[in-house]
Amino acid sequence: MNKLLSFSFIVFIVALVSSCSSCQNQNETGERKVKETITSGVIDISCDESFEPIMEQEIMVFEAAYPKASIIPYYVSEAEALNMLLKDSVRLAIATRKLTPQEEASFKSRQLRVRTVQIALDAIAFIVNKSNKNSVISVDQLHKIVTGEVTDWNQLYPGSSLGKINFVFDNQGSSSMRFAIDSLCQGKPLYTGLFAQKSNQAVIDYVAQTPNAIGVIGASWIGNEADSTNTSFTDVVKVMAVRKAPGFDPYKPYQYYIATGDYPLTRPIYMITTDPRNGLPTGFTKFVSSQRGQLIIFKTGIVPWNANIALKRDVSITDTF
């Protein structure tokens, strides 16, 4: 009898422990949680909005390969993406710059290790309305526009009747605006007459409807989805060719010319993690850096950083100027 009672008590304890363990794996709504590993769990990430076309595809393929993983992206300005990382709102951010020494010191003071991995080489693209006959511009001309030295189309192209140049960025605090300040302003302040929309898509829509506009967007937004060779662009707007300096040929931001450096306005893309447990942020970063993840980047029209993929040069430097 005593043995039977002891056995019943042991069974009860085991059932109770199992029940408590099950409760710990549920959230407040009673839904079962998935333990976070490099291929499972639920995480938020922050991403520069310029790279939404890339990350949407990466996430879709990753989640299909690992059904227990769920990645929730926040597409925001680069400044906000990094700010979310600094505030520990996310453990993974995608941006075009590395952290500053002060930012790294902030994480070090919290005993958080920062890992920065370059995944791609992107380009800043300049787009104009399809009716605009002027589709070649130089780096020096862009410098004069962003600093306010040039404000009218006829200052660039004598005889142009387009009037004032409406030069538009994707949003305040974006990587495109920071690129203009760091690389095009050359120490001068950014002209206050420039303005911003709320996203890369909003810039495309605005330029498509505005004959005198120049839009600044990430190169992954201008690809032709129907062209697997990455040698043509969207037909909604016209993509400008950029001349590095007098005497140089102008180039459009085709994948091949981004890789060779012939297109002069390029920028890296980094995945930055603060993942002490080597969990899903680390796993997703490894996936994007892998051959499979890099092939996805290749298909978006920019340059994968960690893969040996042959790039096509089936374009002419004078293509549709």
Rank of each mutant, 00 (worst) to 15 (best):
M1K: 06
M1L: 04
K3P: 08
S6V: 15
F7A: 15
S8M: 09
F9V: 11
F9E: 00
I10T: 06
I10K: 00
V11K: 02
F12S: 13
V14T: 11
A15K: 05
A15E: 07
A15R: 01
A15V: 15
V17Y: 01
S18M: 09
Q26I: 08
Q26S: 11
R32C: 08
K33W: 05
K35I: 12
T37E: 11
T37G: 12
T37L: 03
T39D: 11
I43H: 01
D44C: 03
D44T: 07
D44E: 12
C47K: 05
I54L: 03
E58Y: 02
I59G: 02
V61M: 06
A64L: 10
A64Q: 15
K68Q: 14
Y74H: 15
E78W: 00
M84C: 06
L85Q: 00
K87P: 03
L92F: 06
I94V: 09
T96K: 09
K98G: 10
P101V: 04
E104P: 10
E104Q: 12
A105Q: 12
S106T: 12
R113W: 08
R115W: 11
R115Y: 10
T116S: 15
T116I: 13
Q118F: 04
A120Y: 11
I124K: 02
I124N: 13
A125C: 13
F126A: 05
S131G: 15
N132L: 03
N134I: 01
I137R: 01
S138D: 10
S138L: 08
V139P: 14
I145M: 06
T147A: 14
T147V: 11
T147W: 08
E149N: 13
W153G: 06
P158S: 10
G163W: 13
V168F: 10
G173F: 11
S174Y: 02
S176W: 03
S176E: 14
M177R: 11
R178P: 01
F179W: 09
A180Q: 01
A180L: 04
S183Q: 12
S183M: 12
S183T: 05
L190W: 07
Y191R: 08
G193Y: 08
F195V: 02
Q197C: 13
V203H: 05
V203W: 07
V207F: 10
A208G: 15
A208P: 09
T210L: 12
T210P: 14
A213S: 11
V216N: 03
I217R: 00
G218V: 04
A219W: 04
W221Q: 11
A226M: 11
T229L: 11
T234G: 06
V236D: 07
M240C: 13
A245F: 05
P246A: 06
P246N: 10
G247Q: 14
F248G: 01
Y254L: 06
I258K: 02
I258R: 08
Y263N: 05
I269T: 07
I269N: 02
I272M: 00
T273A: 13
T274E: 00
D275A: 05
G279V: 03
G279C: 02
L280F: 04
T285M: 13
V288T: 06
S289Q: 05
Q291F: 00
I296S: 00
F298V: 05
I302S: 01
K312I: 05
D319Y: 08
T320Q: 07
